[in-house]
Design a binder for these strands. Structure first.
Length: 229
DNA sequence: GCGACAG
DNA sequence: ATCTTGTCGC
């Protein structure tokens, strides 16, 4: 199953429908592709909220950077109402609509997507990073700020140190230290990239802060809501 | 059954 | 996610 899935007839609006959609799309995830050795353009994706549950406004931001210099080469902001409530394990149905619209409006097609959240390290092995990857066909990585599923040992304190995240005897991701002495981030495969390569790219994209530049900048943009300011 | 639970 | 002051440290 290496092809692209068909888009759903209607966007899921119930927990049952959303879970069924994840099950339908999961087979399309490619975890065998090692992913790109080098990347030209990388996109960071993130969403900011105003309210708290359904019916609230949210702002999605996609920032495209030159992977080598980390200079911003393009950025898009999309603001709209949430179509799904926040449910752990299903939040892609909340953030995906505006993110896909934003990705569609980006002028420079990225070679890699860095998402704020999980990929494989998900209850049904289909987190946001897998979902975006499958729908766009682009390599995708999930980078989360807090633990979700699985167990892991605390990695050594030096930047670059890591420990596998294991759930049901399966390695679903890694707790990766991006800054010495700072809480690690949680990396997992989304689509078309190996876990080793994903972590390699994440470290390369994180020269100064805890979070990779693509996500850090997308987070900043989603909050300001102004692509130019 | 109860608690925990990406953003 | 968001609500929020001061404070420790490079």
């Amino acid at each position: 199953m290496a092809e692209r899935p068909e888009m759903p007839e209607a966007w899921p609006h119930t927990v049952a429908d959303a879970e069924a959609e994840q099950e339908r799309l999961r087979p399309f995830v490619d975890l065998a592709d090692p992913g790109p050795e080098t990347v030209r353009y990388v996109a960071g994706l993130d969403v900011a909220y105003e309210g708290q549950d359904e019916g609230d406004r949210l702002t999605a931001a996609v920032v495209v950077l030159d992977a080598r210099t980390l200079d911003v080469v393009d950025q898009v902001v999309v603001r709209e109402r949430a179509r799904f409530p926040y449910v752990p394990g299903l939040f892609a149905f909340r953030e995906l609509p505006p993110l896909l619209t934003a990705l569609d409006r980006v002028r420079i097609t990225p070679d890699l997507l860095v998402c704020d959240g999980y990929g494989l390290a998900h209850p049904r092995r289909f987190g946001l990073a897998c979902h975006v990857g499958v729908l766009t066909g682009l390599p995708a990585i999930g980078v989360a700020k807090t633990a979700f599923v699985g167990r892991y040992d605390i990695p050594a304190s030096e930047r670059g140190a890591w420990a596998p995240i294991v759930e049901r005897d399966e390695v679903v991701g890694r707790a990766l230290r991006t800054r010495t002495g700072v809480k690690p981030v949680y990396v997992s495969q989304g689509h078309r990239i190996s876990l080793d390569n994903a972590c390699r790219h994440v470290l390369r994209l994180t020269p100064e802060y805890r979070l990779p530049e693509p996500i850090r900048l997308a987070d900043r943009l989603s909050r300001s809501g102004v692509p130019a300011a």
